[in-house]
Design a protein around this nucleic acid. Structure first.
Length: 399
RNA sequence: GGUGAGGUAGUCAAGUGGCCAACGACGGCGGACUGUAAAUCCGCUCCCUACGGGUUCAUAGGUUCGACUCCUAUCCUCACCA
């Protein structure tokens, strides 16, 4: 029983510190029904979750199956500082209003994966506000600058002469203090959070909590480019709230290599099933595209529905495999005659008339399926189907 | 507080008086091709009804026929010293 749980907990993890602690907690749960707490912090700087976040959420859900109460920590206080992790520049500071708005949509998305009845949403503003400047300085005395600079991204930024705001040094401390206040048994986070996660252990010790939290780290899910971590600001993400068609298409666009990462970290298939798929592809009995489609279907179904996923698949086939016109096309209308480049700009197909002209010259613009050759073309009254490139469409009605 | 280095398009990064709307790389976009929005190859990549015009190289002034390049002030970053 414990072995099974451990196996599932282990899946896909990058590193676990103090696995013995986790074993003990599981044992206490299976033997005596004792619950324990697993903390995970979420930074409400962006209102939408993406698949990268769901890697953590799924792991939390796994813990919930084995007796954990999840401390879903919203870093509303720390968000006003901005986590320096992985950032080459100082982050913008959010207003409380922004944060409140983000939290709302954030949690509702999270409960698509988490069991709400086993989750406590906590806000670190609650206790960090109360800390005051005295408490803050006491906290800060636990750490030296040299130690802080050990942190990889700090030293990198320092070396590359990118600014580090002094306030950013406080972030790991505050995150660690969260673990002190919550007396967390386990904390999970991405590998990029290692320093912060360990800070929790160190501070728990300093504040004389008998048992320090175990730490479980998940690898960082790569974004669509397959290189950088999935993140909203890099624009390489698949959002939980993405429309089914987008979600499906984005997953299908990832490289064949990256597909296996997604399988490991996101799919609910067992590791054995995934291994079978892998051998199938390498010996040629399975087509990589169909394997990727299966993944896209699974994920799209999870966040939408099976119907939506199947529709997305047929829509994708229609538009991309057969180069047909998609079903839903945004519609626009305008008064009087329009110059083609201006029309493309107004329909949001192009960012500027200059870009529109370039695309026309290169043969990338079609009206009613026909290539436009004349960049001075003027559209008169009527309805047009405008197309830029392979997948940008708009209907325009000229009155 | 002192001294030195530096701030160039989405990012990184050349350019040190005219040849600069500004090399190159990445990204992005278009085309060809394909199992895909993958890979590869080719082209484009500030704005403007446009063989021309306008606005750019931290900000504000100045020198000059002419400045991203020189001068002055200001803001910001980094290093060393205190």
């Amino acid at each position: 029983m414990i072995e099974e749980a451990l196996l599932e907990i282990n899946r896909g993890t990058a590193e676990i510190i103090d696995i013995e602690r986790i074993e003990k907690l599981l044992k206490a749960y299976f033997d005596e029904g004792k619950n324990y707490t697993v903390k995970a912090g979420f930074d409400p700087t962006a209102p939408d979750l993406h698949l990268g976040h769901t890697v953590l959420l799924q792991k939390l859900a796994t813990f919930q199956k084995f007796g954990a109460r999840v401390q879903f920590l919203i870093g509303d206080f720390t968000a006003t500082i901005g986590d320096p992790t992985g950032k080459s520049a100082t982050r913008k500071v959010l207003t409380p209003q922004d944060i409140a708005k983000n939290i709302e949509s954030y949690t509702s998305q999270a409960f698509k994966i988490l069991d709400e009845s086993k989750t406590d949403i906590v806000y670190n503003k609650e206790w960090l506000d109360a800390l005051g400047s005295v408490g803050m300085l006491q906290l800060a005395s636990n750490l030296t600058v040299a130690r802080m600079l050990e942190r990889d991204d700090f030293s990198k930024r320092y070396a590359s002469q990118t600014p580090i705001a002094l306030s950013e040094f406080m972030y790991p401390l505050l995150q660690g203090y969260d673990s002190v206040h919550l007396k967390s048994d386990i904390e999970i986070g991405g590998t990029d959070q290692k320093f912060n996660l360990l800070m929790g252990r160190q501070l728990q010790k300093s504040y004389e909590i008998k048992k320090q939290q175990a730490v479980l780290m998940m690898p960082i899910l790569e974004g669509l480019d397959g290189v950088q971590k999935m993140s909203k600001s890099l624009g390489n993400y698949i959002g939980v709230t993405d429309a089914p068609n987008d979600m499906f298409g984005k997953i299908l666009s990832i490289s064949d290599d990256l597909m296996w990462r997604f399988y490991e970290l996101l799919s609910s298939k067992t590791l054995n099933e995934i291994a079978d798929l892998k051998t199938g592809v390498s010996d040629g009995s399975l087509h990589p595209k169909s394997v990727k489609e299966a993944l896209a279907l699974e994920i799209t179904t999870r966040f939408h529905s099976e119907d939506a996923a199947n529709n997305a698949k047929s829509e994708f086939d229609k538009v991309h495999s057969k180069s047909q016109i998609p079903t839903d096309i945004p519609e626009f209308s305008c008064e009087g005659e329009v110059w083609i480049a201006k029309a493309l700009l107004d329909c949001a197909l192009e960012p500027s008339t200059s870009q529109a002209r370039r695309d026309i010259k290169q043969g990338g613009v079609k009206i009613n399926q026909e290539k436009v050759a004349d960049e001075k073309l003027v559209l008169t009254t009527g309805e047009y189907l405008l197309q830029v490139g392979k997948r940008k469409f708009a209907k325009l009605k000229v009155n």
